[in-house]
C-alpha cells in the first residue's frame, strides 16, 4: 500500500501550499507521475478517497499527467520508450542508456 503514503504526502504538500496562500478551498490538483516512478496509478486512485477524507483535497478534482518513460541509447543515440530499467535499445540491443524521463513524482499545481 505505498500509494496510500504517496497520497498522504500529496495531501501534506497541498495543505502546506494552500495555507501559505491563505486558501481554504481548492478545486483542482494536478500531479505528474512517471511510469518508472514506482507508483501504480490504479492503486493511487484506490487509496485516494481514504487519504483525502477530511482534508483540503476532499472532493477536489485530481488530474494525473502520466509521463511515459523514455531513454536514450548511449551506444547509438536512439531515443526510445522503456517500460523496465533493464529494457534494451530496440536498434542496437545495447543496455547502456540514460533515462530521459519517467521518474517524475511531483505535485504540479493546485487550483482554486
Amino acid at each position: 500500500m505505498h500509494e496510500l503514503t504517496v497520497a498522504i504526502g500529496i495531501v501534506e504538500i497541498a495543505e502546506k501550499e494552500a495555507k501559505k496562500a491563505n486558501i481554504s478551498k481548492l478545486t483542482k490538483i494536478e500531479l505528474e507521475i512517471g511510469t518508472l516512478s514506482g507508483v501504480e496509478i490504479e492503486a493511487l486512485n484506490f487509496a485516494w478517497p481514504m487519504a483525502v477524507m477530511d482534508t483540503i483535497l476532499e472532493n477536489v478534482e485530481k488530474k494525473i499527467q502520466t509521463v511515459q518513460a523514455k531513454a536514450k541509447c548511449m551506444d547509438c543515440n536512439v531515443s526510445f520508450e522503456i517500460n523496465n530499467l533493464f529494457d534494451h535499445c530496440p536498434a542496437c540491443k545495447g543496455y547502456s542508456k540514460s533515462i530521459l524521463q519517467g521518474k517524475e513524482l511531483r505535485v504540479k499545481s493546485i487550483e482554486f
Binding site: I10, E17, K20, T27, L105, V107, I110, F112
Partner: peptide, 22 residues
C-alpha cells in the same frame, strides 16, 4: 519557504508548485 508564480484565468487561480514529493 517557496516562491510561486500565480496565473489567473477567469475566476480560477492556479498555483504552480512543481514540487517533488521527495
Amino acid at each position: 519557504s517557496h516562491d510561486h508564480s500565480h496565473s489567473h484565468s477567469g475566476s480560477k487561480t492556479i498555483i504552480e508548485i512543481e514540487q517533488d514529493i521527495l
